[in-house]
Design a protein around this nucleic acid. Structure first.
Lengths: 229, 229
DNA sequence: CCAAAAGTGTTTCTATTACACCCATGT
DNA sequence: ACATGGGTGTAATAGAAACACTTTTGG
C-alpha cells in the first residue's frame, strides 16, 4: 500500500453516529446519550465515535453500537453522510450516520446507567447537538420506507411475537392506525411467519398466539419487490 | 471553531466519486474517464476528487461534476459512503459516491476529449478501478427506485421531449418494455406535463408532440407518495 | 400506396380498503 | 356475567395489466 500517492490532499476527521431504534410495545423510541466529552458535554446526543485509519465506517458503527449496547449482530444500515463544513462546532468532522434496530428488551439497564443513555419516544426527542436531530428525522423516514418492502421490523421485536404486537409496531413506525383484519391477512399471506402453539397471556385474557419469523421461507421470495405492509 | 478538541483521532482522506448518467434516446449510459494519475493511471474510472477541508461532500461532488462537464445546476444526489479499508490500493480513502443526471446532448465534445471521457451503455461498462463497478451498480438500482416515485427522469431529457422519448427513457432505466397506452395514460394523468403545439419530426413521418415538465404543477402534488411509473 | 411510428379505449384482473361480530378467558 | 382484547370474511373500489386498430405523412 503506497500511502504517499495522495499526500497533497486534506485529511479530515470522520465519525459515525448511530440512530438506535427500539420498540417498547407501544412507541418507537431512539436511544440517546448524554455526551461525555467536550464540546457540548452533557447535552443529549446520538452515540457516535471517530473512524480510525484501520476500520471501515461499518466497522466503526458496529464498534460504537457494541460499546453502548453490548450487542453484536444487530441490524444496522448506513443512512447518509453528513458533511457540512460547520456541522460540528469544534472542528471539521464528516459524519456517516447509521441506524440500528434492536430488541429493546435485550438492552441492559446496566449499560444504560454507565453511558447516561435514555430511550426517547420519537415524538419527544429533546434538543440534540449539531445536526443530530436531522439525522434522527432522516432515519425515521428511511425506516418507514424500508419496512414497507423489507422484513426488518422483526428486528425490533423479540424472537417470538404476536400479531397484535407486530401491528402495534407497524402503527408506531407509520404513525397511523392500521386495520386489524387487513393487516393480519396481508402479513400471513406472505407465508414468512410460523405460528407457535404457545400464547402470550400478559396483555389479554384470551391470549394471542406467538409467531416467529421464518428467514428461510423469506429467502425463497425475491429479495426485492416484496411489499410488506 | 476550536479544531484542537479532537486531535487524538485519525484523519482520513475523503473523496467523492460521481456516477454520471445520460440518455441518448435509446440506452442509459454512464460517463467514465481514463484516470489521469497514479495509481491505476489510464484505467477506466468514475470521475472523482478529494474533499478539501473547507467544503462539504456535496460541494466537492458539484465541483468535480463542473470540472468534467462544465455544467452547474445538475441534478445530483448522494448515493452511499464506501469505506472499506482497502478499497483504494494506494492508501486509505473513504469515498462518498454521488450520482448525477444530465441531458447527454448538453455535454460538450470538447470536454470529453480533454478528459478522455466516454459514455458507456450500462450493460457495457468496462472493468473499473477499485470499487467503482459496485458504485455504478448501486447507482443504477437507486435510480430505478427513485424514478418510480420522483419526477427526476426529466433531468435526462431535453427541456422538451415527446412521450415516446419519455417511454424509451423509462424502458431503458427499468430494462423492460412498457405498454404504450398504459404508460401514456399514467404519465398524462399526473397532470405535470404541458403539451406543446410543436412536433418532433426526426424519428417518424407522423411526428410526435413535444411536452414540457411543469415543475409548478408538480410542486402542488404531495412531495412524496406520488407514484410515477 | 406503403412503411413506420404516433395516438387512442375497453375489459380483466388484482390489490386495497372499508367494515362488525363472535370468541376465549380471568376476574 | 362481564370486560377485555383476539380472531375472522365479504363486498366495494381503485389501480394495474393486457390487448389491436386507426392515423399521419414522407418517400
Amino acid at each position: 500500500m503506497d500511502i504517499d500517492k495522495y499526500t497533497s490532499h486534506d485529511k479530515i476527521l470522520v465519525a459515525v453516529d448511530c440512530i438506535i431504534f427500539g420498540f417498547d410495545g407501544h412507541e418507537l423510541k431512539a436511544l440517546l446519550i448524554k455526551r461525555a466529552f467536550e464540546p457540548e458535554k452533557g447535552k443529549w446526543s446520538l452515540m457516535g465515535g471517530f473512524v480510525s485509519q484501520d476500520e471501515s465506517t461499518d466497522e466503526a458503527a458496529g464498534r460504537v453500537l457494541l460499546q453502548l449496547t453490548g450487542m453484536n449482530n444487530v441490524y444496522m444500515e448506513q443512512l447518509y453522510c453528513f458533511s457540512d463544513v460547520n456541522r460540528d462546532a469544534a472542528g471539521r468532522v464528516i459524519s456517516v450516520a447509521y441506524f440500528a434496530l434492536i430488541n429493546i428488551a435485550d438492552y441492559s439497564e446496566q449499560l444504560q446507567l454507565e453511558h447516561e443513555a435514555k430511550w426517547f419516544p420519537l415524538a419527544q426527542v429533546p434538543a440534540l447537538i449539531f445536526d443530530h436531530k436531522e439525522m434522527v428525522a432522516l432515519a425515521k423516514e428511511r425506516l418507514q420506507q424500508k419496512v414497507a418492502n423489507h422484513p426488518i421490523g422483526f428486528e425490533l421485536l423479540p424472537g417470538k411475537f404476536t400479531l397484535p404486537q407486530l401491528q402495534n409496531l407497524y402503527e408506531a413506525i407509520y404513525e397511523e392506525p392500521l386495520d386489524k383484519r387487513n393487516f393480519t391477512r396481508k402479513v400471513l399471506s406472505l407465508g414468512i411467519l410460523n405460528k407457535l402453539d404457545e400464547k402470550e397471556k400478559e396483555s389479554s385474557r384470551k391470549g394471542a398466539f406467538y409467531y416467529v419469523f421464518d428467514k428461510g421461507k423469506y429467502s425463497k421470495l425475491h429479495r426485492e419487490g416484496v411489499k410488506f405492509i
